[in-house]
Design a protein around this nucleic acid. Sequence first.
DNA 1: CTGTTAGCGCGTTCAT
DNA 2: ATGAACGCGCTAACAG
Lengths: 346, 346
Amino acid sequence: MKKKTTIYDIAKKLNITAATVSRALNGNSKISEATRKLVAETAKEMNYEQNKLAQALKSGKSYNVGVIVPRIDSNFFASIIRGIEEELYPQGYHVIICQTHDQEALETGNINSLLNAQVDGILMSVSNAKGDSDTSFNALLKKNVPLIFFDRKKEIKGISSVTIDDFKGAYEATKHLIDQGYRRIAHLSNDRSLLIFKNRYLGYRQAILDSGLEFDENLVIETHSKVLEGRKTMKKLLNFENRPDAIFSASDFTALGAIQEIKAHGLKIPEDISVVGFSNEPFTRFMELSITSVDQSPIEMGRLAAQVFLEEVNNDKRIKSEKQVVLTPELIIRKSSLKSQILDKA
Amino acid sequence: MKKKTTIYDIAKKLNITAATVSRALNGNSKISEATRKLVAETAKEMNYEQNKLAQALKSGKSYNVGVIVPRIDSNFFASIIRGIEEELYPQGYHVIICQTHDQEALETGNINSLLNAQVDGILMSVSNAKGDSDTSFNALLKKNVPLIFFDRKKEIKGISSVTIDDFKGAYEATKHLIDQGYRRIAHLSNDRSLLIFKNRYLGYRQAILDSGLEFDENLVIETHSKVLEGRKTMKKLLNFENRPDAIFSASDFTALGAIQEIKAHGLKIPEDISVVGFSNEPFTRFMELSITSVDQSPIEMGRLAAQVFLEEVNNDKRIKSEKQVVLTPELIIRKSSLKSQILDKA
DNA sequence: CTGTTAGCGCGTTCAT
DNA sequence: ATGAACGCGCTAACAG
């Protein structure tokens, strides 16, 4: 590494003090316009760049925030991250992205590493790892490092969150199926220790009850958000003696798997069985048989999470304001659930 | 922030010096086993955690590396990043991910921010932004900050890279189409100032020439890696008086768009028109009409890029060894290009 | 084996 | 308006 120029170098050249240089560069009020200009010029001349590490060490702020997600290769999380970036970059922050791959060890490991890296805060979507990572969260709280949950939250006192109304999204999706005339609606669920899946389950259930239909717990199957898992689960459902005529899936990926399996059995969608997913992943729109899904406005979610973080970090540290932002989901109706021909333009 | 415990705190408690504590913690050879143990214990007791910032300031190493990609919401780049992580995490590095969204300003901006953040190196896939960001690259070189290109490289002396043999991938894809009996093969290209697209074009061209077919430049159309762009371009091609009977697309996304458009025109795939994409994005496998594509083993690519970085950073700084790793692509044949019924199990 | 000292680069008193 | 001096937390050089 070529030696970087420091404020000392430029101080020496100007026969002034490093302190003065620092002040000049930072816009201190009581510095003569002359030296300010002089310093600025020579700084540029010498290709001076502030060493953020030193500044961070001094100020205690690294201007790095950690973002922890289960994985980045879904449009949903990638979009959230984009939203976070859009909000944070202009404020001079950097984003360190970590993936948990739903593994407990990685989750707590990532938190610790980020803390070690002196991040100014952590925005995260909790994984569905089983163990009790709550201890990590509490450690964070004790250190007063801002922690914001988005999408997949845990209910911990004092931690702000940005989520969507999963109950409502599920309710409307299910209601839509009922309105289309479907009567035996199955639900591809997921780990309901995670609030989002619990709420999607509850929304689904309530819609059925409100419509006076019979609620059949056997039609609720817990699976994982993977295409192949969706296929497997659908296979089971198709073997029921009284098989469902519609599927509300808590995930677009399992919805896709279900569709594949349904077709493989020679059944028609949506005539024989209707399918609705969740998250509005791009492929739901691009499939020849486009898939009805619930949009979660992930970019907006990311932006809001970032805003909450900025508030917490800028406000007086002593005021710990817990903030719960809840977004409204939007049902996007497509071919996989609509018997008539009127579709959205997508 | 609660005051963190430092090595001074634990030194005071033990009536020894901070230096000793530091040594004990870092496994210095000449420290008594007794104190080493004692220090370790009290460190744990007091919840001591090393301040990486201070260490970084001291050592000049931040143990952060920057990864710059056009975007993260494609499986290809996400997988590369995963490969990089797998290789770098065990070495204690963190990964700061930046997206350029193919914008020149963001590309140079990201580089500068990363440098400011004192990253130990940058792994990047260049965007197809037009401007001359070469100056940024050269600035990097001058500072001796390791820079490694993956996938989308620029040919700059002294910069290592990990790529795949795009020429070969394109050649084999095109050859496959020819072997299937197709004769008028169009190519959906992309910005050929990027080597990957230039080479895919050249591979396509060579395969045609080698087969004794007529090469028709009119069948090469430059577009962008988006589904809708693929549709638009395909629309044009379908209006040719002598329309193509096969498409080799440099992108899976444009291939998908092309397929949509072909179907919209009531034509059959692969009977009337055959389609091959590039990158082996997951959706190519999941479509009902699965899409033939060229796999680029992105995880492997990421791992290799990380390995090259580690070599550069660990080796003697004075030896600037430029390393060019080239991976071999693999053609994955699926329904969209195969007239017979023998498919891969996918 | 361990203490002393010094410095990484910066911002911030406290003087002047 | 500016200089001198100190400290953020850690490690390395030099003692002893």
